[in-house]
Design a binder for these strands. Structure first.
Length: 784
DNA sequence: GTGGGATCGGTTTTT
DNA sequence: CCGATCCCAC
């Protein structure tokens, strides 16, 4: 057993006598931080929890804390700082570097996934994985699931890849391995009840296939890290003693597996500092467990808790609105966010007739604000619930020649040409990477189509050999001469790339691969607009590989290949990136993004758009009170991004799959006191809404009709989902007279279904009979 | 094995 | 509306 040499070994864990680092500058904490922040920074030993409201200087505390620790002589190598996004990690590293210089480089800092991947590369042989394991992204995983479902002859309408993937993912997040899963009576019974009895078997096959391909999916990086630590005491010992100080950002977003790993790692020294805000927990859908932060004090009774409640970001009006929303939630740690900033402007409510109208109004307001307040484009952000909503804003901004940048959506690394090229790189490093292999074996065309691949898969399954084996030895199997030659050429080519790995660095090899596979040529020959942009994207990727090579090559070894700048190193770094990371900080653009990706950012003026029932809150995540509360936290996060102006908007009509649909203003609008809001922009005049109709003869008729936007902020409260618990069926019954926000007075005729799925058939005086899903309904019972 | 036309289905957030 | 998939003709 090799325990890594620990340079801080001579120190006891709380000795701060001998500073190891040269003090570049002395940090004056009193000058830089408020009292509570300074306390949190200086409390280094033992468990610490910092509850940090929005705009309260959370990142500031974290960075100063690390800088302070290093100045106190703690070895940077023994500090582990975990974040959730690459952006947060990069920003923190930057800021610490500014504070203390190059010592910052030695802190282990990164996302959970990237830090664990780095450790797994070193240790994963213990689990039987090769150290050059591939990382499957969501698309790869879903493709694999789709293929397994097909191979097993199951109905792909029942076993939809999304459902299967999510089920497996949440199992992994709860540290349930495929073996555990199949032995767990509750889970299998649940699957039986959902008419998906084969899920356990699918999970087993999926795990097996990943293992054979030498690949891990995102969740495996976490689960395998846990398995590694819990099954190998020597490895656990090594990292427990390596990471004497552990810090976790956005702790409210940790899932069960991450929680346990942290618990294991900090078990010896108990120097664990978590920073977060339960009110900003918005990742339950990927397993985040808000209880982790709510229960932190129970897990670590000696914890020192600091609450950062002063907001330095937003005006009083914005803080007030945010508080109004979040206090509707029952599940939270008690705290009160306040600010010393000025009152600022009232929150504006924008009413639009349609989504296009919404886009137009927002663009108009941006123009106006730029002129009136001398705002720059960088000061604006448009935040929405779903990526699909960006369209109308893009169109409107483009029409007005306002530069904008969209974050998220189809990320750079998701594009077909990039995925194809990356597949070649992955296949070069790991020949067993099945997803990569299937992606490129017939691209560019080399005469190995589906028929041949099906045959090869069959052979592989029958002989029990990996697909790569079959492909690289086609002569051994019954294949036509033509296919055998093509396969042989392909395998030889990939092998030649592999042998070049020690001779060429990442960029040179990638360039060689692009040429040898004829991918460059293929894309270059496509002269269409999309083809051109595909070619440019590939060039962009190569540029970034070039950049990687340059930053990771040691100067004296220029031109040499090392473990730092070869293809394997590049892939390791890049497979966990979801965006180019190359956002031009200098470019003056309006930012468009989902609320989820806006966490941690701030803008002078924020538009929170698309506030319509079933869209925000989303109808797909409204099955319990907890779900509604998470949507509410999402709205809270959105509002607290704003510094000076906050504008919320909704449209009464929205295009969905090409059809114009009616939308109700969101209940969140009703949750803001009307006195704290003022109508703004867009006016309430009639607007033309374009629509179209396709005749049975496939003729399309476009016409526009006039539409007057409906006023929001009705007085009817949305019915709380808690009322629909099966054990509390009262509240609404057939025979009752009710008032509906939109349809007016009516009689409930009958109610069907249970829980949140309850539907009421109501006869309305003006609008006739309607069926209404009660969990969304804004209804009031009429007395008498 | 390839390419074009018809048909069907899906509606969320991310490492 | 958009992408995946199926079917059919070459």
């Amino acid at each position: 057993m090799v325990v890594e040499k620990d340079s801080a070994q001579n120190q006891t864990s709380n000795s701060k006598i001998v500073p190891l680092s040269i003090q570049m500058q002395t940090i004056n904490l009193q000058e830089e931080l408020n009292e509570i922040q300074a306390q949190a920074v200086q409390h280094i030993d033992g468990p610490v929890m910092v509850i940090a409201g929005p705009g309260s200087g959370k990142t500031r505390v974290l960075t100063f804390r690390i800088a302070y620790m290093i100045e106190q002589g703690i070895d940077a190598f023994s500090i582990l700082a975990l974040t959730f996004t690459n952006k947060a990690a990069a920003e923190m590293r930057n800021r610490i570097q500014n504070l203390i210089g190059n010592d910052a480089r030695n802190v282990w800092m990164g996302t959970f996934h990237s830090v664990f991947a780095r450790i797994l590369r070193i240790e994963c042989q213990r689990l039987g994985y090769p150290s050059n394991f591939s990382i499957y992204d969501t698309t790869d995983s879903k493709n694999l699931i789709k293929r397994i479902v097909k191979e097993e002859g199951l109905n792909d309408k029942i076993y939809k890849p999304n459902i299967v993937y999510n089920r497996i993912s949440s199992a992994k997040n709860s540290l349930i391995t495929s073996v555990d899963y199949n032995q767990d009576f509750n889970l299998t019974a649940e699957d039986e009840a959902n008419r998906r009895p084969k899920l356990g078997a699918l999970y087993r096959t999926y795990t097996k296939r990943l293992f054979e391909a030498g690949a891990m999916d995102f969740d495996d990086l976490i689960m395998n890290m846990y398995l590694l630590l819990s099954q190998h005491p020597d490895v656990l010992y090594k990292y427990q003693h390596k990471f004497k100080y552990i810090m976790v950002d956005e702790y409210q977003d940790t899932n069960y597996a991450q929680y346990l790993i942290i618990k294991l790692l900090c078990d010896v020294f108990q120097n664990i500092a978590v920073v977060g805000d339960d009110a900003q927990s918005i990742y339950a859908f990927r397993g985040a467990n808000i209880q982790n932060i709510l229960n932190f004090e129970k897990d670590y009774p000696e914890v020192a808790t600091f609450k950062l409640e002063q907001n330095y970001r937003s005006t009083k009006n914005i803080v007030k609105i945010a508080n109004q929303i979040i206090t509707k939630n029952k599940l939270q740690l008690p705290k009160e966010i306040w600010t010393d900033n000025s009152d600022g402007n009232k929150v504006k409510l924008i009413r639009a007739a349609s989504d296009n109208d919404e886009g137009r109004i927002v663009a108009d307001i941006i123009q106006e604000m730029k002129l009136r307040n001398h705002y720059k484009n960088n000061d604006f952000a448009i935040l929405y619930r779903t990526n699909a909503q960006s369209r109308s804003f893009e169109e409107a901004l483009r029409r007005q020649n306002i530069p904008y940048k969209i974050y998220g959506g189809l990320s750079f690394y998701q594009r077909k040409e990039i995925k194809d090229f990356m597949a070649y790189l992955r296949l070069t490093v790991n020949h067993n990477d099945e997803e990569a292999l299937r992606r490129v074996i017939n691209y560019p065309r080399r005469g190995i189509g589906d028929t041949s691949m099906n045959k090869i898969t069959l052979i592989a399954n029958e002989t029990g050999r990996p697909i790569w084996e079959v492909i690289s030895n086609p002569a051994l199997y019954k294949l036509t001469a033509r296919v055998a030659t093509a396969l042989d050429a392909f395998a030889t080519m990939i092998k030649s790339f592999r042998s070049l790995m020690t001779k060429k660095d990442a960029y040179d090899l990638a360039h060689h691969i692009g040429k040898a596979t004829k991918m460059f040529k293929e894309l270059h020959n496509d002269k269409s607009v999309e083809g051109l942009s595909r070619y440019e994207n590939l060039q962009e990727l190569l540029n970034s590989i070039n950049e990687f090579r340059d930053t990771n090559s040691e100067e004296k070894l220029a031109g040499e290949v090392s473990d730092q700048n070869n293809l394997g190193a590049y892939l390791q770094q890049v497979s966990l990136l979801t965006d180019t990371g190359k956002d031009d900080e200098n470019a003056d653009t309006i930012k468009l993004m989902t609320i989820h990706s806006a966490k941690g950012l701030e803008f002078k003026l924020v538009f929170v758009v698309g506030l319509e029932e079933n869209l925000f809150p989303s109808m797909l995540s409204m099955n319990s009170r907890e779900d509604l509360e998470e949507e509410r936290r999402l709205f809270y996060v959105a509002c607290t991004r704003a510094e000076e102006h906050l504008m919320v908007s909704y449209a009464n009509m929205r295009y969905r799959y090409g059809n114009l649909q009616y939308c109700e203003p969101s209940r969140f609008i009703d949750e803001i006191s009307p006195f704290d809001m003022e109508a703004y922009g867009g006016s309430t005049q009639k607007t033309n809404v374009k629509t179209s109709w396709e005749s049975p003869m496939k003729q399309r008729f476009n016409f526009s009709k006039q539409f007057k936007p409906k006023q929001a902020a009705g007085n009817l409260p949305a019915i709380d989902i808690t009322d629909f618990k099966p054990d509390n069926p009262a509240t609404l019954e057939a025979g009752m007279k009710v008032v509906h926000q939109r349809f007016g007075k009516g009689n409930i005729q009958h109610i069907e279904g249970e829980g949140p799925a309850r539907m009421a058939t109501i006869q309305f005086n003006q609008f006739g009979q309607k069926r209404i899903l009660l969990k969304y309904a804004k209804l009031q019972i009429m007395q008498g």
